[in-house]
Amino acid sequence: MSTIDIRHAHTLPAENARKAIEEVAAKLSERFGLQSNWVGDVLNFNGSGVDGAIALQPGQVQVTAKLGFLLSAMKGMVESEIQRVLKEKLG
């Protein structure tokens, strides 16, 4: 099982960052079929072969995920897609 740990800086107010994270989750849902829900300032997500969270912190977000066997083989592609969407939505 592979893990992903990405930190991405942002300068958005908390409310705008939360909306941006929801847009990130929507993109990831389209791409990987994930379901998500907020618990405080953490957006938990899961789907076939992936379990993780996006934590909203002052000045940064942290994406952590555990990839199942099939997605582990595509870890680089998954990380690149997450980073691309974070950059697009959070700057």
Rank of each mutant, 00 (worst) to 15 (best):
M1A: 09
S2N: 06
S2G: 00
I4K: 02
I4Q: 03
I4F: 05
D5C: 06
I6M: 02
R7M: 08
T11S: 09
T11I: 02
L12G: 05
L12V: 07
A14H: 11
A14F: 06
E15N: 04
N16C: 05
N16W: 08
A17F: 06
A17R: 03
R18L: 05
R18N: 03
K19A: 12
K19Q: 13
A20K: 04
A20P: 02
I21E: 00
E23N: 15
E23D: 15
E23Y: 03
V24G: 00
V24F: 02
V24C: 07
A25M: 15
A26L: 04
A26M: 03
A26V: 02
S29Q: 11
E30H: 11
F32Y: 15
L34K: 04
L34G: 01
Q35V: 11
S36K: 06
S36P: 08
S36G: 09
N37A: 15
W38D: 02
W38C: 03
V39P: 01
V39M: 14
G40F: 08
G40K: 14
G40T: 11
D41G: 10
V42S: 09
V42H: 03
L43S: 05
N44Q: 14
N44I: 06
F45V: 01
N46W: 08
G47Y: 07
S48T: 13
S48L: 12
G49A: 07
G49T: 03
G49N: 05
V50Y: 03
V50M: 13
D51Y: 10
D51N: 13
D51A: 07
A53W: 04
I54E: 02
I54L: 10
A55Q: 09
A55K: 09
A55H: 06
L56Q: 03
L56S: 01
L56C: 04
Q57V: 01
Q57L: 11
Q57C: 01
P58N: 04
G59V: 11
Q62G: 03
Q62D: 08
V63W: 03
V63I: 11
A65T: 02
A65C: 04
A65M: 02
K66R: 12
L67A: 01
G68H: 03
L70N: 10
L71D: 01
S72K: 09
A73E: 08
M74L: 14
M74I: 10
K75G: 04
K75C: 05
K75V: 05
K75Y: 05
G76W: 13
G76K: 14
G76Q: 12
M77L: 14
M77F: 11
V78P: 00
V78R: 00
E79G: 04
S80P: 01
S80K: 14
S80G: 14
S80F: 09
S80H: 12
E81T: 14
I82D: 02
Q83E: 13
R84H: 13
L86C: 06
E88F: 09
E88P: 07
K89V: 12
K89C: 10
L90M: 10
G91H: 07
